[in-house]
Amino acid sequence: MAKPEVRKLPKPERRTQLLDTARDILRECGADALTLGHLAERAGVSKPIAYEHFGTREGLLIALSEEIEARHVGKLKAGLEKAPPTLPAIADVISSAYIGCALESGPEWLAMSGALRGNAQMDAVQQTLADDYVAIIAAALARFSTLPPDDLRLRCVGLAGAAETMARELIRGRIGENTASANLAALIMHGIAA
């Protein structure tokens, strides 16, 4: 049986298609099954196309991670722009955006982050993404805190770690979305006090 002819897509559309297919592979088969060869086969393209877009398996996983973070930060910023200027409202936006993104990303987020632990390139990318996220939430919370900026930033680093841990509990089915969001919001409100 002959393979169906692959429609030529513009590069940005092809990248989106490949990332969507990669998420499907992660969800259905786990991180070990996500190779550029498997991705190309599932997407109906040649291996060189997959390599052209991502270079390596790690490059693909980094691209997925960056995409998830960009979506999360976009939702966070949009929510912060619309939120009333009160600490409970800002804390709710921060917690809801994080928990909602984790829920949307699902188990493939856990598989992806596990697959990249110990990879120097991914560690650097994740540190940059974490630093950017911490800067956003520290800026949003600064007007409600009397902490010195360096202490507030450090507290926000801790809040980001707590958010990740709660998101993992949620994805594993150990807590519900409302419980995760409410408890994260409470940690945020109490965590920035002097």
Rank of each mutant, 00 (worst) to 15 (best):
L36R: 12
L36C: 05
G37L: 15
H38Q: 15
H38N: 15
L39S: 03
L39Q: 10
L39Y: 09
A40Y: 03
A40R: 03
R42W: 01
A43T: 09
A43Q: 13
A43P: 09
A43N: 11
A43R: 15
G44F: 08
V45G: 02
S46I: 13
K47G: 05
K47F: 15
P48Y: 04
P48I: 02
I49T: 15
I49Y: 10
A50S: 06
A50T: 08
Y51S: 13
Y51K: 10
E52W: 13
T56C: 13
T56F: 09
E58Q: 11
E58I: 12
G59N: 08
G59V: 05
G59E: 12
L61P: 04
L61S: 12
I62F: 09
A63E: 14
A63V: 14
L64F: 05
S65Q: 13
S65C: 12
E66K: 12
E67Q: 13
E67G: 07
E67T: 00
I68W: 08
E69S: 14
E69R: 09
E69W: 07
A70D: 10
R71M: 12
R71Q: 14
V73E: 10
G74S: 06
K75A: 06
L76I: 02
L76R: 05
K77W: 01
K77F: 06
A78K: 10
A78Q: 05
A78P: 10
E81W: 03
K82L: 09
K82Q: 07
A83G: 07
P84K: 11
T86D: 01
P88V: 05
P88F: 09
I90Y: 03
I90Q: 00
I90E: 01
A91G: 05
A91M: 11
A91Q: 04
D92G: 14
V93P: 01
S96Y: 12
A97P: 01
A97H: 10
A97E: 03
A97V: 05
Y98M: 14
Y98H: 15
I99L: 08
G100V: 14
G100W: 03
G100A: 08
C101W: 09
C101A: 15
C101I: 12
A102T: 11
L103F: 05
L103H: 11
E104P: 03
E104A: 04
E104H: 02
E104Y: 01
S105M: 13
S105T: 12
G106N: 04
P107F: 10
P107C: 08
W109T: 03
W109Q: 13
A111N: 09
A111P: 05
A111S: 15
A111R: 02
A111K: 03
M112C: 07
M112A: 07
M112D: 04
S113Q: 09
S113P: 00
A115F: 02
L116W: 02
R117C: 06
G118Y: 00
G118I: 05
N119Q: 15
N119L: 09
Q121L: 14
Q121K: 15
Q121V: 11
M122P: 00
D123W: 04
D123A: 06
A124W: 00
V125Q: 03
Q126H: 01
Q126D: 00
Q126A: 04
Q126V: 00
Q127A: 04
Q127P: 01
T128V: 08
A130Y: 00
D131T: 02
D132S: 08
D132N: 06
V134N: 02
V134I: 13
V134G: 00
A135W: 01
A135C: 01
A135F: 03
I136R: 07
I136L: 07
I136A: 04
I136E: 06
I136G: 00
I137K: 11
I137L: 10
A138F: 00
